[in-house]
């Protein structure tokens, strides 16, 4: 088997121009810029249209980037005459630098999925509205962005694979669901390694033109057992049995220790009393030897937090044969 190039330098956006990309939703650069109103900085098309995906219902995602210290603002919505939603975000250069400097990017939960890795995957495809503008990321920044994305995907994959093993050991009826989610994370990782820089389940099949990615995707779609997941992960150079040892467990910082009538509990979200885990196992691997069902419940209630150590993992994309 021959190793495929892991990180394709590629160009910033796979689309020829913003004008071409916007044609998909029947919009023009002029009317999108008009919808932006007055702004300071450089406007870039990001999102599925900039990545060469998208369809006629896609949002027009625009990031306006300026060289200030300001923090990012929330989204501002506007609409084109044809009804396309223009989602505008103002991003300080310092925000981009923070995302690029992320350490352990999978460790901080972000509900919407707008993690540093998610943002970086959009910025890797950014297309400037002004053709003379400089690319959003330099080549060095693009390499760093890919490293952050891979590290983030590895952290998610390690946690999901470890939790799938825990659920299977606990005899949970829905252990297969965690196997499937771990498979999706592996599929995302494989697509990223093939050089298709865009995160999101919706476009995974479209990012699977590389035969090895397609093979990982096909296996991910059907895996139900941890054994099948292990075979799938071997395709990208990951030893599934190693992953539970890499996922550390601890009491969640927001879970309060309580004692009621001599029994220890953890008070979670000012609402649930979950049996305490003061002396709980330090890793998922250790938890597999104990009361897996209680641990899974504690994790699902937010009484326990986790972090994945992905140092030394070297995923690679192999030939599909």
């Amino acid at each position: 088997m021959s190793a495929a190039p892991a990180y394709d330098a590629g160009q910033a956006s796979p689309v020829a121009s913003v004008e071409d990309a916007l044609r998909t939703v029947g919009a023009t650069p002029g009317e999108v810029l008009e919808a932006l109103g007055d702004y300071d900085g450089e406007a870039y098309l990001v999102g599925s249209l900039a990545a060469g995906f998208g369809d006629r219902r896609s949002d027009v995602d625009v990031h306006v980037v300026w060289d200030g210290e300001s923090v990012e603002t929330g989204p501002i919505l506007a609409f084109t005459r044809g009804g396309a939603c223009v989602d505008v975000r103002h991003v300080g250069r310092s925000g981009i630098e923070r995302a690029l400097a992320s350490r352990h990017p999978g460790a901080v939960p972000v509900s919407s999925g707008r993690t540093p890795a998610w943002l970086l995957s959009r910025w890797l495809n950014a297309a400037p509205f002004d053709p003379a503008a400089r690319p959003l990321l330099t080549e060095r920044e693009r390499a760093r962005a890919r490293a952050v994305i891979v590290e983030s995907l590895l952290a998610d994959l390690a946690a999901l694979a470890a939790f799938a093993a825990l659920a299977e050991r606990a005899g949970a009826a829905r252990a297969w669901y965690l196997v499937r989610r771990a498979g999706v994370a592996a599929w995302e990782l494989a697509a990223t390694l093939s050089g298709r820089d865009y995160l999101g389940e919706r476009w995974l099949p479209a990012r699977s033109s590389h035969p090895a990615v397609a093979a990982v995707g096909a296996a991910a779609c059907s895996a139900r057992r941890v054994g099948e997941l292990s075979a799938l992960l071997a395709r990208i150079g990951i030893d599934a049995e190693d992953l539970p040892r890499r996922v550390e467990l601890r009491r969640h910082s927001e879970a309060e220790a309580w004692t009621l009538d001599g029994r220890p509990w953890l008070l979670v979200a000012s609402r649930w009393l979950v049996p305490g885990f003061e002396d709980g196992p330090p890793t998922v691997a250790a938890a597999l030897e104990g009361d897996a069902a209680s641990l899974l419940h504690g994790l699902s209630r937010g009484a326990l937090a986790w972090s994945a150590d992905v140092e030394g993992l070297r995923p690679r994309l192999e030939d599909a044969r």
């Binding site: 939960p109 509900s111 999925g113 998610d156 946690a159 999901l160 939790f163 659920a167 949970a172 829905r174 252990a175 669901y177 965690l178 989610r181 899974l296 419940h297 994790l299 699902s300 937010g302």
Partner: peptide, 10 residues
């Protein structure tokens, strides 16, 4: 999302 997955699985 991963916490949602745990809720669903359990």
């Amino acid at each position: 999302g991963l916490e949602v997955d745990l809720l669903i699985a359990a």
